[in-house]
Design a protein around this nucleic acid. Structure first.
Length: 295
DNA sequence: TTGCAGGGGTCAA
DNA sequence: TTGACCCCTGCA
């Protein structure tokens, strides 16, 4: 079967997608955009997206997605893995200097996932002054507590909950996820979304500054978290989430001096334009994996 | 063994 | 503009 130029072969345990370019599960799942893809011993990744628990393996240019059908590829994986985007073109346009060239070569298999926006919101509220392994643990516990049980491959997984489940809980129960002071933000944010104070699915119809401002109405959401939510949910791509790692790499490689958050944002907007989000992801992964500027 | 710094930022003063 | 913040790991 064919879909949008991809050849899909159905197997008994899943599907094979041939000739997938510009994709490497290590780069895509460990570049910091997501928290629920777990590396397995054989190098493949287990993950839960919507109500599906799957394993993704990549060999040569062949992508194997377990527990999936041709229809799942059309309805879910093609969008989620951003397989409709021409990353050759994006890379060519971003190779403006030696720094970007190095960063792109290093993370050549990064694709920006189109993740559920509520899951992205909660995950990045958890990210404030926190560490990645702990964020992953908290997201997992929240899913166990409030999500739906899914059985796949003889194991049990949990979907990320919806807004009703989260808004309907109480602080004491939520604190089981060990999110600390962020738990109250999660609960209040979920309540605001449920009431309709902030319409997550309406953000795509706003311009980027408006969408950002709208998200920042939510507790625990500042400029960095707002940009992450917009970028990693596939809502806006002209944002440049600036955390400590991006700040370090920009200071060390571009500015050669201490630089304010505002100045970095303005530079990124001018220099990378509508592709700023892709540039940020290559730079972040490059900086963090190589500990650029780390003490 | 104990103590302390510090981490994908945000909030409040 | 600055310090506090849950929690917990790493390191002295």
């Amino acid at each position: 079967m064919k879909y949008k130029g991809y050849k899909i072969t159905a197997e008994k345990n899943g599907i094979i997608v041939d000739n997938v370019k510009n994709f490497d599960p290590v780069h895509t799942f460990e570049c910091g955009q997501c928290f629920r893809w777990i590396r397995q011993e054989d190098g493949s990744y287990d993950g839960v997206v919507r109500k599906k628990a799957v394993n993704i393996k990549f060999e040569g240019n062949r992508l194997f997605i377990s527990n999936s059908t041709y229809e799942d590829f059309q309805n879910l994986w093609y969008q989620y893995l951003d397989l409709g985007r021409d990353y050759d073109d994006i890379k060519a346009r971003l190779m403006k200097d030696e720094i970007m060239e190095r960063a792109i070569k290093f993370g050549h298999g990064i694709r920006l996932l189109k993740q559920d926006i509520l899951e992205t919101l909660i995950s990045f509220i958890l990210s404030a002054n926190n560490m990645i392994p702990r964020i992953m643990k908290s997201v997992e516990i929240i899913s166990c507590l409030y999500g739906e049980e899914i059985h796949a491959g003889g194991r049990t997984y949990y979907s990320f909950p919806g807004v009703d489940e989260l808004a309907g809980t109480n602080l004491e129960r939520l604190e089981v996820c060990r999110g600390g002071f962020r738990c109250k933000y999660i609960l209040q944010a979920a309540e605001s979304v449920k009431k309709g104070d902030v319409d997550l699915y309406g953000l795509k119809y706003m311009n980027t500054p408006e969408a950002r401002k709208e998200l920042m109405k939510l507790p625990g959401v500042g400029p960095k978290v707002a940009d992450c939510v917009l970028l990693y949910s596939g809502t806006k791509y002209d944002v440049f989430p600036t955390d400590v790692w991006v700040k370090r790499v920009m200071e060390e490689l571009y500015f050669k001096r201490e630089t304010s958050f505002k100045e970095i944002q303005e530079f990124a907007s001018d220099y990378f334009g509508e592709l700023a989000g892709f540039a940020q992801q290559y730079l972040f992964y490059y900086a963090r994996e190589n500990r650029i500027g780390a003490r």
